[in-house]
């Protein structure tokens, strides 16, 4: 019963919110394309002003994850290492080998060169 009441309240408040948004603008059509164009003092843009750029922090972020993942797993690993013995060393070795491929890739891409 409580769930039903909560559901009805949710529906009512959603409806009220949508009505509040729709009511003031019900007689206003969307502004025309020329009005929505960017103001350039009478000039025209060649293209949309949706500017994209090369994310330069991307390789740096990948590198951080590569190193951080190592550390994250090595803490719990250090706890179980004595109990598990050689098996744990091999598993960790495999894990580190996979991650180091990422670091080598980063190295090749020049992430260690400070610019």
């Amino acid at each position: 019963m409580e769930l039903l009441v909560l559901f009805v309240i949710l529906i009512l408040s959603l409806a009220a919110g949508l009505l509040l948004q729709w009511w003031p603008g019900r007689h206003h059509p969307m502004p025309t394309y020329p009005q929505r164009a960017p103001f350039l003092g009478g000039g025209l843009p060649d293209t949309h002003a949706w500017s994209r750029f090369h994310v330069r922090y991307y390789p740096m972020a990948l590198l951080l994850i590569a190193f951080e993942m190592e550390m994250m797993f090595m803490y719990p690993w250090a706890v179980v290492y004595v109990a598990q013995g050689m098996k744990a060393v091999m598993e960790m070795g495999m894990f580190l080998a996979i991650l180091s491929v990422g670091i080598l890739y980063g190295w090749r891409e020049g992430v260690f060169r400070w610019q």
Partner: peptide, 19 residues
């Protein structure tokens, strides 16, 4: 600084108030 951004070409004026 070497950051490759999209280039944006537009014509500004003749009624641009800061010119």
């Amino acid at each position: 600084d070497g950051l490759a951004l999209d280039i944006l070409t537009f014509r500004l004026g003749p009624f641009f108030p800061l010119w």
